[in-house]
Write a protein that binds this DNA or RNA. Sequence first.
DNA 1: ACCTGAACACCGTTCAAGT
DNA 2: ACCTGAACACCGTTCAAGT
Lengths: 183, 183
Amino acid sequence: MRADAQRNRERLIEVAHQVFKERGLDAPLDEVARRAGVGPGTLYRHFPTREALHEAIFSSWIEEVRSHVDKAMLTEGGSREKLLAWFEEYVALLTRNHGAAAKITASLGCQDSPLRTKCQAYADANERVLEAMADDGALREGVDNLDVCRLLGGVATMADQSSLDAHAVRPMLDVIANGVLRS
Amino acid sequence: MRADAQRNRERLIEVAHQVFKERGLDAPLDEVARRAGVGPGTLYRHFPTREALHEAIFSSWIEEVRSHVDKAMLTEGGSREKLLAWFEEYVALLTRNHGAAAKITASLGCQDSPLRTKCQAYADANERVLEAMADDGALREGVDNLDVCRLLGGVATMADQSSLDAHAVRPMLDVIANGVLRS
DNA sequence: ACCTGAACACCGTTCAAGT
DNA sequence: ACCTGAACACCGTTCAAGT
């Protein structure tokens, strides 16, 4: 790759990160190109679709999810406290960008989404936590990982579009925790 | 109101119902006007915002919610069966139009949304069901109506955008039911 | 090989001109 | 009082012309 192309690509990702954080994942791509000082054609050359750009934005996703799940598993207390700590971390992570919760959770089902690796990282992390719960004998039978991921994705999506803070989200996570754990 | 205005208004609602069912609540308004045989200005005169048109589309909402909650409360079995019957009815109702689940649930919080009466009807219906559960001593303490509404709205939104059928939705509703009822 | 920016398409919204 | 449709704005997307 030519040196100027390399620079443009990096600059686009950097600017897009900023713009998407400010105005949400549906922000005008014009603005990304303009602020990066390139023509719209250059943006499209590097990222043919909006999703391709989203994918680049979330590149640190996998490591972030891993570190958050590790942190949550070290929470003081029993299964319930660990599970809720993870749920809270996750919703916080997913609501960091406007529109991300819905898009990432939607790609849980379909194999061909560019966000596939991102949501898979989340699903894997959640499975780790659920398995730890199961090892403690704390998990109800018949609880499916994908269903829990979608429930949390739903909560995060609602929090995203109603601008709910952690305090408002917590009771919903309590209900899910109650539904997932033996009483 | 002049006779032709009356006719245009009715025709717009009828056509919009059709178009929104086919292409989702974000369908081009152009098409609504075109198919109704009126100029775009006429559409804007009757419905100044897209939300105003949505509001007209969901005019039968309140009665529908009422009839569904009545139906669900007549389900054979205990509290759990009734609750799940209601949850299923509601998600089905909310996913009837693409994009409706997210929009209606988002307006749960804000007082000034045109969809206010619609989501209020749902929240009231859900409260009726939860109170019936509480009267049977089946409800956990500290379960809040708004939280349950948002949880169900989240499930419906996920089902909407991942095209999940009732069969795929059911296990998520089971988790919520477990979380809401005493074990 | 890559970039630019004009050009086109699509759709939301307004408003002067009509009836 | 209401309708029409041209007109403008905004944004996504493409592509011929440049370097």
